[in-house]
Amino acid sequence: MPDITHQTAPTRFAEAGGNSYAYRRFGKDASGDVPLVLLQHFRGNLDNWDPALTDALAAQREVILVDYAGVGASTGTPATSVTESARHIIAFTEALGLESVDLLGFSLGGFVAQEIALIRPGLIRRLVLAGTGPKGAPGMHGWRADIASHARARVNDAEDLLYIFFAHTETSQALGKQFLGRIFARAENRDEPTTVAVRDAQYDAIVEWGIPDHAALQRLTGITAPTLILQGDDDLMIPTKGSHTMAGLIPDAQIRIYPDAAHASLFQYPAEAAADITAFLA
């Protein structure tokens, strides 16, 4: 029987709190290893994960991709706050009977991952925060106009994703185009596209998270899970300096900054990111 991969993993559903959560579960189920749950970016669904990253991670451990409530094929109303999304994902893990997980949050998913680590610290063994930032930090209150116009376009096309996710250099844009080829390679049983309602609800959550609040930064000192922070050296959506702030305040944190990269550094350098994440989780 052929191995199940990112491209062939079936979409399953878990019922929790009146919502039906769409998810895909695949990879090496090593005895004693907890699964790695991945939380997606603004407007992202199951098919927006890079197969080059997820398959490399799945070679070493079991991977679970999940849509937030109301996103993609998941039912329910999209959350308008990070805390609401965090509680939804906690309910999802309970529905699967998961008592301990490793958690990787990218962008908005990183906000949610931080909140889960604070609300339910016993659930998280190790935490990976990629292309994300801390609540209330400087430069987090919304996006600059050009990024917002591309990120909040009624339908995100390839040009929008290249603009907001990758550095505006020839090398980064070329790697971005390779990423786009990979995420559209799955031909059958693709996830449902995200809606304008999802866009608006998630943007509200992002803006609220970024309201300047110096005191909120102290929340990071309550994260007890060992944490790996990944980001590009010039993130156009979430200031890279926020990653250094997180690394300084989370008690057991390490940081890796990728060169010539912007928001989606883990998709620009999927092999390197997978190796860094795998080594950290091991």
Rank of each mutant, 00 (worst) to 15 (best):
L108H: 04
A130Q: 05
V101T: 14
E94S: 12
A271K: 13
L230W: 01
I223T: 06
P78K: 08
S265K: 00
V101Q: 02
S81A: 14
Q254T: 15
A264V: 07
D234S: 10
P2Y: 00
E188Q: 12
F184M: 07
Q40A: 15
T195K: 09
G133V: 04
L162S: 01
S81L: 12
Q231F: 05
H88S: 09
T77V: 15
H214T: 13
G136S: 13
D260H: 08
P51H: 11
V71N: 11
R12N: 08
Y203W: 13
Q7R: 08
S74W: 01
L129R: 06
G181F: 05
M246C: 12
Y269M: 13
P51M: 11
P270H: 06
T5Y: 10
E159G: 10
E115D: 15
D160V: 04
E192W: 07
V155E: 15
E188A: 14
L53P: 02
F165K: 02
G44F: 01
A253N: 09
V198N: 06
K135L: 10
E272S: 10
Q60Y: 07
A201K: 10
T75W: 07
D47E: 02
D204I: 01
L230Q: 03
A9E: 11
A264C: 14
R152E: 12
R152D: 00
L162Y: 02
R144G: 09
D235G: 12
I229S: 10
L161D: 00
D234F: 03
I147A: 11
L127A: 03
R144L: 13
A16G: 08
R25L: 10
A69I: 01
I147C: 01
Y258S: 03
T278W: 06
D102L: 05
D233R: 11
A279C: 08
Q114G: 04
Q231K: 04
E170V: 15
F179W: 14
L123I: 03
Q178Y: 00
R87L: 13
F184N: 14
P121C: 01
F92E: 05
A197Y: 04
R144A: 11
E188H: 13
S81F: 14
I116N: 02
P121G: 06
R190N: 15
A95Q: 03
T93F: 13
D204Q: 12
D47W: 00
L57D: 03
M237F: 00
V63G: 07
A130L: 11
I90E: 07
D47T: 10
A261R: 05
D102Q: 13
G32M: 09
D276H: 03
A137E: 01
R186V: 09
P212Y: 12
